[in-house]
């Protein structure tokens, strides 16, 4: 799909009244997180990288998001939302076991690392987890569908769309305080909102 907002970068508004100090502090900190600093180990990090790249691809015309780093830090800090289904352990343990299970699944199916699978095989494997059709024994204690629905999807998607590049790609106004919006009607936008360009 043609990027409708190729010329829009929400970060251009960082020093305008659309951003307050607190927002600048939070976003700056987020964008500075690095994968290596999280400390979940190289093997799991490789699995996580491949997983994130399949679930949440980078936008074509905007800077790549550091989604893997965000998620790796979340995992290490065990920063969950608190609630979890009775079938799953807490976030950190759940992810570490889940990453190992994905790796085991790749070994069981293809005899090689998940990080080394091509897109087609990786996606087929993930669709298996999504449907609860798995081969590795790791999934006995960690129900694949629950792991997928309560951890993989919400966590990756939340981290990915917390990054300004993804906001730019979708033409989202981004942070908006103290300045909000004036023009609320259909097909109207303020000068500080993204202008949409037609496909092609």
């Amino acid at each position: 799909m043609a990027d409708r907002y190729a010329h829009y970068d929400v970060l251009d508004k960082r020093d305008t009244p659309s951003w307050n100090d607190k927002t600048r502090q939070v976003i700056d900190a987020r964008m500075s997180l690095r994968e290596a600093d999280a400390g979940i180990g190289e093997a799991r990090l490789a699995t996580l990288r491949r997983l994130v790249s399949r679930i949440a691809p980078q936008p074509e015309r905007h800077a790549p998001a550091n989604t893997v780093a965000l998620l790796a830090h979340k995992i290490v800090k065990d920063e969950g939302e608190g609630f979890r289904p009775a079938t799953l352990p807490r976030l950190r343990e759940c992810w570490l076991r889940g990453l190992d299970a994905i790796e085991a699944e790749a070994q069981a199916r293809h005899g090689r690392a998940f990080a080394g699978l091509d897109a087609e095989r990786a996606d087929a494997l993930l669709r298996g987890i999504e449907a609860g059709e798995t081969q590795a024994s790791d999934w006995i204690a960690l129900p694949a569908r629950d792991f997928w629905n309560w951890r993989v999807i919400p966590d990756i998607v939340s981290m990915h769309w917390s990054h300004p590049s993804l906001w730019s790609a979708m033409g989202f106004g981004g942070p908006a305080s103290p300045r909000g919006y004036v023009r609320l009607d259909v097909n109207r936008r303020d000068p500080w909102e993204a202008e949409e360009h037609g496909d092609g």
């Binding site: 009244p17 305080s177 103290p178 300045r179 909000g180 919006y181 004036v182 500080w192």
Partner: peptide, 14 residues
Amino acid sequence: NMGGWRNWRQNLLA
């Protein structure tokens, strides 16, 4: 209004 005159692009209109 929120942001006062610094946010004049919104507040002059709103």
